[in-house]
């Protein structure tokens, strides 16, 4: 399915990553085109975190190849990937809570004016640009001087996405941007994912929630136990099937059966069964 893809912006082929005897990823292939969203789905422990780190240049894959704009890549550090326009927005490590929005927005790439000892941080430009760029993403920020710590989780992710887009990201890798968010906030983040896609950016959206992935995704790669369990385009798979696949099809049916028999036993309390619903844990294995 992943062979002979047309002009992928970023593609990995048969990537494996071993940590000693542990096989974190085996023969994982995926790709993203410009202006498309590829969703990497997987439950806890499926290998999502490792895959992100390989994509971001944090881990070197043990085996397999990594192509960006048709050329094979070998990153030594996340900085290498970033310089090429592969930006990763991590779930918790995106922002510095005590710093204001505009300071966060330009942290590490501050615009400056002047020369030599009088080189200074162009504060007006930074504040102005922050407001404008957030506006382009459809986010109307109240006060760029506000510390990021006072923003909601969804707003923080949005600032991080807007920042990556502004600094010329061609590929945007989003690590569980909607986990730990409320329904409405998750919706806001999904909107920015579509915004980024519409601006011609290739988005790799990592999540364990098929309900978040399905509305925005063009491709779905389902990971299980470090391997690709399925790879589909949106036309090939309806949401229900994706959900079922995520939970592990047969397992879910067994669980459903168990729950039903448990419930049929009558009015006796069967509280334990309720704990097995799909309540996602924000932590990825």
């Amino acid at each position: 399915m992943t062979t002979a893809t047309e002009n992928p912006l970023l593609e990995i082929r048969k990537i494996s990553k071993f940590f000693g005897s542990v096989i974190a990823l085996q023969d994982v292939s995926a790709f993203v085109r410009a202006g498309e969203v590829t969703c990497l789905l997987g439950d806890n422990g499926a290998g999502k975190s490792t895959l992100i780190k390989v994509l971001a240049g944090v881990h070197k894959p043990t085996d397999g190849s990594y192509f960006f704009e048709g050329r094979e890549m070998d990153f030594d550090s996340p900085r290498d990937a970033l310089d090429l326009g592969i930006a990763t927005v991590y779930q918790d490590l995106a922002m510095i809570p005590l710093m204001s929005i505009w300071r966060n927005f330009f942290l590490g790439s501050e615009p400056t004016r002047g020369f030599g000892p009088f080189k200074r941080y162009d504060v007006d430009f930074a504040k102005d640009t922050t407001r404008k760029e957030m506006g382009k993403m459809g986010i109307d920020i109240r006060d760029p001087d506000q510390p990021v710590g006072t923003l909601s989780g969804g707003e923080r992710q949005s600032v991080a996405i807007a920042r990556a887009v502004y600094f010329g990201a061609k590929v945007l890798i989003l690590d569980e941007p909607t986990a730990a968010l409320g329904v409405k906030q998750a919706g806001t983040v999904l909107k920015y994912i579509v915004q980024a896609k519409n601006r011609g950016i290739g988005v790799i959206f990592i999540t364990h929630n098929p309900h978040h992935a399905y509305p925005v995704g063009d491709h779905f790669v389902v990971l299980r136990r470090g391997q690709v369990y399925g790879d589909f385009t949106k036309e090939e798979i309806p949401l229900e099937q994706l959900v079922q696949m995520m939970a592990g099809g047969a397992d879910l049916e067994v669980l459903q059966h168990e729950l039903e028999t448990e419930l049929r036993r009558g009015a006796e309390p069967a509280a334990e069964g309720a704990a097995a619903d799909d309540g996602p844990s924000p932590e990825d294995g």
Partner: peptide, 24 residues
């Protein structure tokens, strides 16, 4: 307050890993 280094100082102390991730 008015230089790149200042921003880096706040970033380093505020969240070292995040700061490193964005290239500080």
């Amino acid at each position: 307050l008015r230089t790149q280094w200042g921003n880096w100082i706040f970033g380093t102390g505020g969240a070292q890993e995040s700061a490193r991730n964005v290239g500080v």
